[in-house]
Design a protein around this nucleic acid. Structure first.
Length: 447
DNA sequence: TGAAATGTTGGGGCG
DNA sequence: ACGCCCCAACATTTC
C-alpha cells in the first residue's frame, strides 16, 4: 500500500498575467542546469518570455517511502540553485506540485519546450501531455539532451541494433568523430527569459519531505581522477571514480561536456560513458529486459530466493568483507564503487542464487545515481542473463577480488571496522560450495 | 570488467 | 655427468 504523501504546497492559483499566450514554458525534468541544455537553448533562441518550470509529480513522490528521500533532497537543492541563477538574470523558476496531465490542462501558454525522457513512465507521461497540449493548440517541443546518441543513431550496417558492446562503442566513436555535438551556451540568450519577481519556492517540508542527511558528490569535474582513471578506477579504497553519476542522473552536468573531456583525457572513462548510452539503447529496443532476462533461456533459472539470506546481503552481514563493505557503503552514502557493485551483484545472484531483480530493486531504492537502463543492464550483466553479459560460469571469488583490488584493506576497514572480532559474522555460505552449486544450477537450467 | 583445473616447462636437489 | 623427481612458475583449457 503506497503511502499518500501530503503536500501543503499549492501555487496553482497563479497570477493570470504570469502565464499567458505570450509566455513559453521550459519544463525541467532530468536536465537541471542552464548551460548546454538543448531544450532550454531552443526555447530561448526561438521565443521571448521564456519561463522555466519544474513540476513535483505526485505519481512519483507518493511512491517514496522515506520522508528524508535523498533524491528528492538533491532535486530540491538543484532547483534552489537554478532559482538563484534565474533570479540573477531577472527571472525566476516556477515550481508546481501536481499531476502533469492536470497541471498542463490548466495552463494557457504559447508553447512548452522540454528534453526527451526515455524511461517508460516519462514516455507515457510525455505522450499524454503532448496530446493534451496539442488539443489546446499549444506547441509541445522536446529535444535530445541527455545522451549523445539516442536509441537508433548508432546501428549495425543492416539497420538492426547492436547487442555487443565493443562493436557498438567502435561505431559510436566513429559517429562521434564524424560530427562532434556542439555545446550550446545559453548565456547570451538569458535576456529572453520572462522578467518576473521571485516566485514561491516550496520547502521540503511543504512538499511532505524532510532533508536527507546524505552528502552529495561535488558537481566539479575531477581532473586528477580522470587522469588516473585507467590505472586506479578499480580501487575502491581511494577516490578513483568521478562520482558524477548523480549529476548525469539529474542533468546537473552536461553529457556533451563530459564526453568531450573524456575524448581528450581518458578513453577508458569514455567507454564508461558509452556503456551508459549502450544500455539506454538496449532498453529502448528490448524493453522486455525490465521484466525478464535479455536471453529468454535464463528465465528458467530456479532461484533459491531465501528472504533471510537476502536480508543479510542487504545489511552487509554476509561474512564476506568486500561484499559487506559494499552494501554498507551503499546503505550509508547512496553510492557504491563500481567494482564493488559487480562483486556484490555476483555474490547475490551466483553465491546465494537470488533473483537479480531483487538486487536490482534494492539498488534502485538506494543509489543516488540510479538510472533504470544502467542499473538493469549492470544487474543482467552480473547475473549472466543480459546481452553481452559475463558468461554464467564467470563467478567472482569475493576474497580474491578483495585481495586484488583492496590489497591494503583500506576500503574494507572503513566499512567493516569490526572485522577480526567476534562481532563479525562467519561467511554465510562456503565459497567452493556456492560456486559449484551456481555452475550446476545454471548449467541444468540452460542445458 | 574471472577463477579453478589442468598442462607444460625448467631449475635444482639428489642418488 | 646424468636421469629422475619435485614443484614453482607460467600457459592453456575448462567451467
Amino acid at each position: 500500500m503506497p503511502l499518500k504523501r501530503k503536500s501543503t504546497f499549492s501555487n496553482l492559483l497563479l497570477d493570470p498575467k504570469l502565464l499567458d499566450a505570450t509566455t513559453t514554458l521550459f519544463w525541467f525534468r532530468r536536465d537541471l542546469r542552464l548551460e548546454d541544455n538543448v531544450g532550454l537553448y531552443h526555447a530561448l533562441k526561438e521565443n521571448i518570455n521564456v519561463l522555466p518550470v519544474f513540476l513535483f509529480d505526485p505519481h512519483i513522490l507518493e511512491k517514496l517511502e522515506d520522508p528524508a528521500d535523498a533524491r528528492v533532497t538533491f532535486i530540491h537543492d538543484s532547483l534552489s540553485l537554478l532559482r538563484d541563477e534565474l533570479k540573477a538574470a531577472g527571472s525566476s523558476l516556477l515550481v508546481l506540485y501536481g499531476k502533469p496531465e492536470e497541471v498542463f490542462g490548466q495552463l494557457s501558454v504559447n508553447a512548452v519546450y522540454t528534453n526527451h525522457d526515455y524511461e517508460p513512465y516519462g514516455r507515457s507521461r510525455d505522450e499524454a501531455v503532448g496530446r493534451l497540449l496539442k488539443a489546446k493548440g499549444i506547441l509541445f517541443r522536446s529535444f535530445k539532451d541527455m545522451v549523445v546518441f539516442e536509441r537508433s543513431e548508432v546501428m549495425k550496417g543492416d539497420g538492426t541494433p547492436y547487442t555487443i558492446f565493443t562493436p557498438y562503442s567502435r561505431k559510436w566513436k566513429e559517429a562521434f568523430e564524424h560530427s562532434i555535438p556542439r555545446q550550446l551556451s545559453t548565456k547570451s540568450l538569458l535576456s529572453n527569459l520572462k522578467k518576473c519577481k521571485p516566485l514561491p519556492f516550496p520547502s521540503l517540508e511543504e512538499l511532505g519531505f524532510s532533508r536527507s542527511a546524505l552528502v552529495f558528490p561535488e558537481r566539479k569535474i575531477p581532473a586528477s581522477i580522470i587522469k588516473a582513471y585507467a590505472r586506479q578506477r578499480d580501487i575502491p579504497g581511494i577516490p578513483s571514480t568521478t562520482r558524477l553519476g548523480v549529476h548525469l542522473r539529474f542533468g546537473t552536468v552536461s553529457i556533451r561536456k563530459l564526453v568531450s573531456i573524456a575524448r581528450d583525457k581518458s578513453e577508458v572513462w569514455l567507454n564508461e560513458l558509452i556503456w551508459r548510452e549502450f544500455y539506454h539503447m538496449i532498453l529502448w529496443h528490448f524493453p522486455h529486459v525490465v521484466e525478464r532476462a535479455f536471453k529468454p533461456a535464463y528465465d528458467r533459472i530456479p532461484w533459491v530466493n531465501n528472504p533471510d539470506e537476502f536480508k543479510r546481503w542487504c545489511e552487509g552481514q554476509t561474512g564476506y568483507p568486500l561484499v559487506d563493505a559494499g552494501m554498507r557503503e551503499l546503505n550509508h552514502t547512496g553510492f557504491m564503487h563500481n567494482r564493488v557493485r559487480m562483486v556484490t551483484a555476483s555474490f547475490l545472484t551466483k553465491h546465494l542464487l537470488i533473483d537479480w531483480r531483487w538486487g536490482e530493486a534494492y539498488f534502485a531504492g538506494k543509489l543516488l545515481d540510479f538510472d533504470l537502463a544502467a542499473n538493469n543492464g549492470g544487474w543482467q550483466w552480473a547475473a549472466g542473463t543480459g546481452c553481452d553479459a559475463a558468461p554464467y560460469f564467470r563467478v567472482f571469488n569475493p576474497q580474491s577480488q578483495a585481495d586484488k583490488f583492496d590489497p591494503d584493506m583500506r576500503y574494507i576497514r572503513q566499512w567493516v571496522p569490526e572485522l577480526g572480532t567476534p562481532a563479525y559474522p562467519k561467511p554465510m555460505v562456503d565459497h567452493a560450495f556456492a560456486r559449484q552449486r551456481a555452475l550446476d544450477v545454471y548449467k541444468e537450467a540452460l542445458g
